[in-house]
């Protein structure tokens, strides 16, 4: 679409709210643009505070957690414990200190991280409060559910074990 035609129809403000247009730069301009951007970004990085970096880390953590929860794939490594360990590391806190901050025993924190125990609901709520709502409790619970769902769908042994307890099984089927 011709920019001049659009310019007759819309104001510059409207165009900026509805488009990013293709702009062709010459090789010389491209080189200059890359240099300018690199210099500007260097300055931005230097001005970044520890708080900006922590917020960036929390955003990344949240997005990676969201992406995993939304994906249909199950990854046995991405457990509640894995994400909890990453959260504590992201804050650069000792486990003892973090356990105190959410008022749980350090042993319980270790059990949760190592997946020796499933998290009680109150832990998910405390994690949400601790993150100042950046990581909702529902995300932590959905992580556990994703794992439980995978286990229940794939556990052949349990099905074998439970079969003798079922009587009067239906003879009709949906397939």
């Amino acid at each position: 679409m011709n920019y001049k035609k659009l310019r007759k129809k819309y104001t510059p403000e409207e165009l900026a709210e509805g488009f990013v247009f293709p702009v062709k730069l010459t090789a010389k301009q491209q080189k200059e643009a890359a240099k300018q951007l690199a210099e500007a970004r260097k300055k931005t990085q230097q001005e970044m505070t520890d708080q900006d970096r922590l917020i960036s880390g929390l955003w990344q953590f949240r997005f990676q957690l969201e992406d995993y929860l939304e994906s249909k794939e199950y990854n046995p490594d991405l457990t509640f414990g894995h994400f909890l360990k990453r959260y504590v590391e992201l804050l650069d806190k000792k486990r003892k200190t973090f356990a105190e901050e959410i008022s749980i025993d350090e042993t319980l924190l270790s059990q949760l991280i190592n997946m020796h125990r499933l998290p009680p609901d109150y832990v998910a709520i405390r994690l949400e409060i601790h993150s100042n709502n950046m990581i909702p409790a529902a995300y932590w619970i959905r992580l556990v559910e994703k794992q439980r769902l995978h286990e229940i769908e794939t556990d052949k042994e349990m099905r074998k074990k439970e079969r003798p307890f079922v009587h009067g099984k239906l003879t009709v089927s949906l397939s």
Binding site: E32, A33, Q36, L37, A40, R41, T44, E47, M48
Partner: peptide, 12 residues
């Protein structure tokens, strides 16, 4: 943020 030929978003 204006970086000459380009605009960008980074950091804050």
């Amino acid at each position: 943020v204006n970086a000459g030929w380009q605009l960008y978003l980074e950091g804050e």
